[in-house]
Amino acid sequence: MNNEQTKSLIGAISMEEYVQKGKLSQCLPADAQITLELAKAQADEVWSVEKEKLEVISLDYEGYTVNMTFQMDGTYLFDSVNVWAEVGNSVGVATEIDVESDSGSVESTLVTSKLAAMETVERIQQFAANLGMQLEWFEMGDERVCLMPSAVTLHYLKQQNRWKLVKIAGAYRSVDEVRASLSRIADAVN
């Protein structure tokens, strides 16, 4: 994989595949590898955390940003996706749905996007049901966190009685460790 391919290969990854497999690197073709050097060459932003000896590489795409965290020696640690698009813009990502809705119907402003299967709580539940997948939910004040069987977490914020997908955190620890951590946080918040 060369410098030009890194960003396009990562951008081509299906978010459905990512949340099932847990890591960006597991979604790439067998002969492709994400390295610190290649990621840096196409990064939209690079930040170094000297104290922890980490480098975070950010790649911007339409409606979301992929963040990859490496140790400064080049060891790949984990990845995440920040969703930043709003309802009504040209991207159509992170469309919101009314939390109070009993019908479960999605607002008419929904636009098909790369994140369509998970952009609302109802959509990720439907996606999981179609695959026979069990999801675990953690309530943390104005945030709902969905734990996938892959140890990926999807983070939804309640904003003016609406849930909005704001982050997907890739697997870094085992699902049992993530579950225990989320339970402790939920207990402390609630």
Results as ranks from 00 to 15, higher is better:
G92H: 02
E4S: 01
L110R: 14
V121F: 09
A85K: 07
Q134N: 15
A128Q: 00
M118C: 05
A151M: 06
Y76H: 01
E17L: 11
S14C: 03
S113V: 02
R144P: 05
T65P: 03
R162D: 12
V46N: 02
V121H: 01
M148A: 07
A117E: 05
V49R: 10
T112P: 12
A188E: 11
K164R: 12
K51H: 07
T75Y: 00
K158V: 10
Q20K: 11
S183C: 04
H155W: 14
Q26F: 15
S101G: 09
K21V: 08
E37A: 15
A151K: 05
E16Y: 09
M15S: 10
V83H: 09
K167V: 07
G104Q: 02
Q71G: 12
R184Q: 08
E4N: 05
A188C: 04
V19S: 07
V145D: 02
L54A: 01
A117Y: 06
A180T: 10
A128E: 02
Y61S: 03
G141S: 04
V145S: 07
G132H: 00
A180E: 11
E143T: 15
N161T: 03
T35Q: 01
A12K: 11
A39N: 02
N67C: 13
K40H: 03
D73Q: 04
K158R: 12
T35S: 06
E119K: 09
E136H: 04
S80N: 14
K21W: 02
G141K: 00
D31F: 05
G74N: 04
L24E: 06
A39R: 04
K167E: 12
E86H: 15
A169W: 04
K21D: 00
N190Q: 12
